[in-house]
Nucleic acid binder design. Sequence first.
DNA 1: TACATATTTGTTATCGTTACAAATAAGGAA
DNA 2: TTCCTTATTTGTAACGATAACAAATATGTA
Lengths: 137, 137
Amino acid sequence: MIDFKELLKEHGIPPSLQRIKILEYLHNFKTHPTADMIYQALVDEMPTLSKTTVYNTLKAFAEKGVIVELSLFENEVRYEYNTTPHIHFKCIKCGKIYDISKTFKCLKDEKIEGHKVSEHHINLKGICKSCLENAKG
Amino acid sequence: MIDFKELLKEHGIPPSLQRIKILEYLHNFKTHPTADMIYQALVDEMPTLSKTTVYNTLKAFAEKGVIVELSLFENEVRYEYNTTPHIHFKCIKCGKIYDISKTFKCLKDEKIEGHKVSEHHINLKGICKSCLENAKG
DNA sequence: TACATATTTGTTATCGTTACAAATAAGGAA
DNA sequence: TTCCTTATTTGTAACGATAACAAATATGTA
């Protein structure tokens, strides 16, 4: 069981109830949600929750490296709990985003053609396994 | 000298003046522009040009594979003339996008963990060579 | 408990994009 | 060429995601 309060403190973020809940959600549901999805998921439990808070919180988390901001495809921003770098696959049929376990040589903190790399994203797009099987049947 | 009129026809797109000009721009300026940048660049020469036309045209081009839609970072859509797959680097300081010439094994048309890949993007983010040098001085 | 500060909230504004219908242009047939 | 049908373009209005802002609330500390 992770102490999210402690984890936020370690990243220099004062742990408010809203921040803890949002971080908890991102940790428990690895669905790469948008800001709005997170808001919708939490607003029942926290009726006074504001979207602005969700946006502000996600921004702060991303800046401090607690989570990662993904700009996968189609102009939509998604968020995920910061784990080891991995490949993302987005299905153009069902819209689902998969984590690919295959590892890759991450260029983070290296230099390429003189540019210093701080983030390295690999994004795939196509038809997912599940949609391929449905199409067959 | 490329015959853009012919090129559009080959892709099944009837070549209007607007379409030719937009394609020409994307071919001549490899700056990964946004739709708005393209509009701003062309509106002087074509005063009646509409933004809707630019958006519609870019969408049609991307669907037919004439250009590629890039969702690099920060929720912004950019476009580039369709060339061979390559790595993109975006500078977080100056915002410029660089093409990295280093090649990579593209997974296009292959399967990974059961998913069929149709697009393969590698996006880097960091401080570009030019900004690094400026910071030193 | 009280205070100063940080956070949250709700509203409003902004930006990129899309929907839509009217105006215009283009291409083919007579 | 001229007419006619169809596709394209245009301009406006609407939309959704995000950000700005100030007021309200909560927080941590003395």
